[in-house]
Amino acid sequence: MAPADEARITGQLGLRERKKRQTRVALSQAAIRLCVLNGWADVTIEQIAAEANVSVRTFRNYFASKAEAIAASHLERMLRIADDLLARPVGEPLWDSLLHAVLGQFVPQDNSAPQNERWREGVRLMLAEPALAGEIVKANAAAQQELAKAVAQCTGTDAERDVYPKLVAAVVAAGSAVAVEHSLRADEAAPLGAVLSQVFEQLAAGLPVP
């Protein structure tokens, strides 16, 4: 195969994968939006597909259930955190890089995400759904594996043989989850960015880079 032909095919595959990823994200975000605003029990796969402007068949090509669709957003966000971590300046302290990467994905810079009490209550109810718990666990396992690879690359460790990158990835996932839960359940609205900063400050003090 000529180099030009190989490059063209590689480009097509890359574009196809990006479009598939965009469709996954659109379906996942539609599922979250509808379930938060309308309640878990009142949302169907048909409604999610319509909200994302795709067919039900397309939905089923990507996800087996609305729980799996919602959990996909968690995996996607953690994948972006891993990408952002690798893009941070060389020599920046690891926990500073992680905080920047996490804040960039958890705290919208354009303030476009709904933050009113109705939205917060809807998120709390959605996250309490038993059907979602198992899918979140699976998505989190995959997310930690990818984040561990990025941490290993940043710290010169091995994601397969060394404990440190796996430990950091697990702690980042757990710390982020704690911050989200605290922000959602606080008696007074607690800005997620401030809670995340507090969490990562404490993590950095107890997990020095080897």
Rank of each mutant, 00 (worst) to 15 (best):
L86N: 08
D83G: 07
L203S: 03
E68L: 09
S73E: 12
A87S: 07
Q12H: 12
A189D: 03
L34H: 02
R16P: 00
V195K: 03
G156E: 13
L15R: 12
D158A: 10
R21G: 06
I45Y: 01
V163P: 00
P191K: 10
V180A: 07
A205N: 11
Q198V: 03
A31H: 01
K20F: 02
A2E: 11
R33A: 15
G104N: 08
M1D: 13
G134D: 14
D158W: 09
W119Q: 13
A87W: 00
N116C: 12
D84H: 05
S55P: 02
C35S: 14
E121D: 14
K66A: 11
R185I: 06
S73Q: 09
P3M: 13
G11P: 02
A177C: 09
G122L: 07
V209D: 10
D187V: 11
T23A: 11
V178C: 11
A150K: 01
A177H: 12
K138P: 00
A113M: 06
D83C: 06
W119F: 15
A82N: 05
L86Y: 00
Q105R: 15
Y164H: 06
G206R: 15
P130F: 07
V172Q: 08
L13Q: 13
A67C: 09
G11D: 10
N53T: 05
A41G: 03
